[in-house]
Simulated scan of single mutants.
Amino acid sequence: MRLQLLPLSLLLKSLPDAVHSELLSRLFNHLLKGQYIADQLHELDGKRLAIAIGDTHTELVFTIRDGRLARAPGKAWDVRIKGRLEEFWLLATRSEDPDTLFFARRLNIEGETETGLYVKNLLDGMDFDWRAHVQAVAGPRLAPFILRAVERLQLDRRVQAVIAH
C-alpha cells in the first residue's frame, strides 16, 4: 500500500462502516452537483451499491434514491465493487483508467450484471466539471463572480491540473 494511503486506511479500520457510508454519501452528493453523472443516477433508483475494500475490511453500502446516494442500512446489495484501497484511490483520482482496473481484475463487480455494467460505464465516463459544479453550488448570481475570480487569479489552471492527476 502507498504510504500516503496509510492515514485513510487507519481511518477506515477504526470507524464503523455506517459512519463512512454516511460521510461519503454526503460528500459524493455534494460533488455530483452540476455533473453529468448525477442525471444518470436516476436509472439506478432503488438499487443498493456496495464498495468492499478488502485490505481494510470495509464494506460501504449505499442506496440510490431520486438521483442521490444515501447510506443504506444493513449489508444487502444489488451490485458490489471489490478491491484494495489503492485501486479505489486510483479510480477516485483518475490516476488509472477504470477499464484497466476492471479488466485486470484489480477491481471486481459482483451481483446484477446489467446494473454492474451500468455502474462501470458511469465510472468510465466520469469527468469532473468544476465550472459546472461551482455554478450548481453557488447559483446563477454568485457563480459568475467566483469563476471570474478563479480565472483572474489563474487558479483555473491549477484546479484543472489537480483534476487531471
Rank of each mutant, 00 (worst) to 15 (best):
L142M: 14
P7D: 06
H57C: 00
I109A: 11
V119M: 11
D97I: 06
V119G: 06
R2S: 12
D99W: 05
Q160I: 14
E151D: 13
L60D: 03
F62M: 03
A164Q: 10
L23I: 11
L85A: 07
T63G: 13
T63S: 15
E59P: 00
D17P: 08
A72S: 13
I163Y: 03
P7K: 03
N108F: 07
L101Q: 01
R26G: 06
R105K: 14
V162L: 15
H42A: 13
H165V: 14
D66W: 07
D124R: 12
L32M: 11
S9T: 08
R157D: 12
A104P: 00
A76W: 03
E96H: 01
A132K: 06
Q40N: 11
H42V: 14
K82A: 15
E114P: 00
R152F: 15
H133S: 06
R48H: 08
D124K: 10
R26P: 00
S95K: 15
D66S: 14
D156Q: 03
L15V: 10
L24C: 04
V159R: 02
G54Q: 12
H30R: 01
L90F: 05
A70L: 14
G67K: 04
K47I: 11
P7F: 08
A138C: 11
D129V: 04
I109T: 13
D99H: 01
M1W: 04
V162G: 01
P140I: 09
P16Y: 07
